[in-house]
Simulated scan of single mutants.
Amino acid sequence: MSTQRHYSPIDRLLLQADTALRTLIPNSSHASRPSPAVLEPQSNLDAQQTGHIAGLMRINHTGEVCAQALYQGQALTASLPDVRTKMEQAAEEEVDHLVWCEQRIRELGSQPSLLNPLFYGLSFAIGASAGAVSDKVSLGFLAATEDQVCKHLDDHLQQIPEADRKSRAILEQMRIDEKAHADSALEAGGYRFPAPIKFGMSLMAKVMTSATYRI
């Protein structure tokens, strides 16, 4: 006997609002896995290093805010139930990353970006639009987005000192998860976006990273 619940459109809108609030209000989300940073020792970082790492982790946190919005928007407009479920599951797994990044930002004496509500709204609209086109495009957009995230994580891992094992442990686990999400979306039939579209996505991502590094 199936235990899957069937939600009405109103139910889904209320769930979307609840997710948005839990994503944007500090300390509102709870991770299902402990942060990889808890097993790593504290490191001695100077003020310049601390500020730079905090900026990078703020970028990653905003990236997870955008991921939540993208997946929720895609789930809202997905036509096939299994695709909707895949989007919702991906969003739940990304909550861990959201919480881990916020915790690390606080430990570094900083705070998440004040621009998160803006980027959440824009990302939700983009995700809903992709889902409305087709499930194939929606899955392909998920894969292309995760590919961009992996590139950002690789770049940040090169910038973060080896001594900061806490931040590095978080980003290393995030990269593993993001790569798995991208592969899963393509295996489910996602459209492989051509290079020009991916390039355009990378330019949009640069706007987000430049703004959230300091704000």
Rank of each mutant, 00 (worst) to 15 (best):
M87R: 01
D147E: 14
T62H: 09
K136T: 13
D96I: 08
I170P: 00
I105N: 02
I160H: 03
Q148F: 04
L76C: 06
A143C: 10
A67K: 02
G121K: 02
Q158Y: 03
S134Q: 07
V99K: 05
G140N: 10
E107G: 10
S113V: 04
L70I: 07
H156E: 00
F141G: 03
Q148C: 15
D135F: 02
P161C: 11
I105V: 13
V95P: 01
F124S: 01
L76P: 00
R165D: 00
S110P: 10
C66P: 03
A144W: 02
K136A: 15
W100C: 00
L108F: 05
S123T: 04
P161D: 03
L122D: 00
A78T: 07
I170D: 00
A78C: 05
A130G: 10
R106E: 09
D82L: 10
G121S: 11
L139N: 04
E94P: 07
K136Y: 00
A132H: 13
K86Q: 14
S129L: 15
G127C: 06
Q89G: 07
C66G: 13
R168D: 01
K136D: 05
R84T: 12
Q74I: 09
D154W: 09
H97S: 08
A69I: 01
E172P: 04
H97K: 08
D82Y: 13
R168Y: 10
L70G: 07
Q89T: 15
S129H: 04
R58V: 12
L139E: 02
L114I: 11
S167E: 01
F119H: 04
I105T: 05
D96F: 12
K166H: 10
A144N: 05
E94K: 08
R104C: 03
T85C: 11
A91K: 12
G121F: 06
P117R: 06
L171H: 04
E162H: 12
L157I: 08
I59P: 00
K166F: 07
Q148S: 15
Q111E: 13
E162K: 13
V95I: 15
G73H: 02
A90I: 14
N116H: 09
V65T: 07
T145N: 13
Q68H: 14
L157V: 08
Q89W: 07
A144F: 05
A163D: 04
Q159W: 06
P81D: 04
M87C: 14
S123H: 11
L115V: 03
L171M: 08
S138H: 03
E64G: 11
A125E: 00
I160D: 01
A67W: 06
A67T: 08
I160T: 04
T85H: 15
Q103D: 12
D135V: 08
L171G: 05
S113Q: 06
A169F: 11
C66S: 14
E146A: 10
D155K: 15
S79E: 09
L142F: 00
A169M: 03
D82M: 11
D155E: 13
L139W: 02
Q89F: 11
Q158F: 04
R58A: 09
I105S: 03
E88H: 12
G127H: 07
D135I: 03
C101A: 15
K136E: 14
Q148T: 15
